[in-house]
Each structure stands twice: as C-alpha cells, then as structure tokens.
C-alpha cells in the first residue's frame, strides 16, 4: 500500500492509497479521479489514461514496452514525461508518486 497523488490538469489534487499490485489507472477509476478514462480496461489499447510523470519517479516505474509507446501516438500532447498509467503497477518503491493527468484523453 502506498500513496499516489493524481493532479488534474486544472490543478485539483487527489491523494489515494493504492494497494501494491494495482494498476494506477484502475486505482484512479475506482476512486473516480476525473480525467482518467481507462476505456479499454487496462489492455494498453486506448490511450485514455495518459499521464505525465517527472523523471525521478519515472525511473522507478517499469520500462515502457513498444506497444505502450505505439499507443501513446494516439494520446494528446505527448512528451518525454508521458506514460499510460494502466501500464504502471503500484509497488513499495512508488509510494508518494505524482501523476499529472493530461488535459484531454480523447
């Protein structure tokens, strides 16, 4: 269990306790964090859970696989901090991570 801070593009902060092993998209959807849609249910098929993660946290996350990189092509305003949070699983190391939610998912 660790804390994840989701920040909406308008600055609203949601701090949520997430169990280890839960995807950061699923935790956001369960806790109704606005701005994370997760249309495909975590199959890395829809690009609607796009977030930005600062480098110090990004290096603690599992590496991006080629499919996530490819699907990110469909997300809006992608930059080097971009990740699809359905592909990030909560762990001890990520306790305190901040995810900045993309302005739009569609």
């Amino acid at each position: 269990m660790g804390m994840v801070r989701y920040i909406e593009s308008n600055g609203t902060v949601h701090e949520i306790d997430v169990k280890n092993g839960t995807s950061l998209m699923q935790a956001a959807v369960t806790h109704m964090v606005p701005g994370i849609e997760g249309d495909c249910g975590g199959a890395c098929a829809c690009a609607t859970c796009h977030v930005y993660i600062d480098p110090e946290w990004r290096q603690k996350c599992a590496e991006m696989d080629p499919l996530e990189l490819a699907v990110l092509d469909f997300a809006w305003d992608v930059n080097e901090d971009s990740r699809l949070c359905c592909q990030i699983t909560m762990s001890e190391e990520l306790d305190g991570i901040t995810l900045r939610i993309a302005e739009r998912q569609y």
């Binding site: 249309d39 495909c40 199959a43 098929a45 829809c46 690009a47 490819a70 699907v71």
Partner: peptide
C-alpha cells in the same frame, strides 16, 4: 500496422 494485424485490440478504441 493494422493491415498486418487484422483484428488488434486497439482497433476497438483508437480512432
């Protein structure tokens, strides 16, 4: 890519 993989999961979601 889609032509090579005629029924990928992404086809349902990506527009």
């Amino acid at each position: 890519r889609w032509a090579d993989d005629p029924d990928p999961a992404q086809l349902r979601f990506l527009t």
